[in-house]
Amino acid sequence: MAADWIVFWVCAPISIGSAIAMLLQRNAVHAALFLIVNLFTVAVLYLVLGAPFLFAVQIIVYAGAIMVLFLFVIMLLGVDREERLVERLRGQRTAAILLGLGVVGEVVFAIRAGVGFSTRAPAGFGAANGGGNPQALGRLLFRAYFLPFEVTSILLMVAAVAAMVLARRRERPVASAERRAQEPIEPSEPSEPSEPREEEPVG
């Protein structure tokens, strides 16, 4: 028994199980916690596949930063909201599950045709990973992939600016939610196009 075999059979079922559990949770916070479990197990699979740098990045960026951002927004929007379970389109859920099974069957068939279930990876990453995986990755990133790397920085900057612009409170057109909560008696505000609906337990 090779170690990677054991690690795979421990981590892959946990990751798929936690993904399914995430799907079945009605509470958004629980779904986020299951997603964190899933991200951790996928990070361990990266480690098995010889990508220690991506293992660290996965845990720091995904399970750390992105999931904290998610939890932050969930808390901001209210934790106690639960989803309505009524289907708006009849049969949507069954159709989605059937189509999902179709996709997974199709992809497994494609993997069998294209890769084959007995193909094993070459023994070592030695040649590609000369001097360690992060070093080799950095060399590749700053030589062959230098332009995409710089474009990525522009993307991140644009995303930061976009987040600030989108989340900014505009004074007139959108009456801010907090002001409405603080001053319940507001002198006849012009009728908004989207008045909040009454007592609808939305999730």
Binding site: D4, F8, A19, I20, L23, Q92, G100, V103
Partner: peptide
């Protein structure tokens, strides 16, 4: 490395499918 690569790919396909079912259903 004794685990065939296809196993990882199948796990990845399963995760992708669960994700797309989630997008459709939730």
């Amino acid at each position: 490395m004794r685990t065939p690569i296809a196993y990882f790919l199948v796990a990845s396909a399963a995760l992708f499918t669960i994700g797309s079912v989630g997008v459709l259903v939730r």
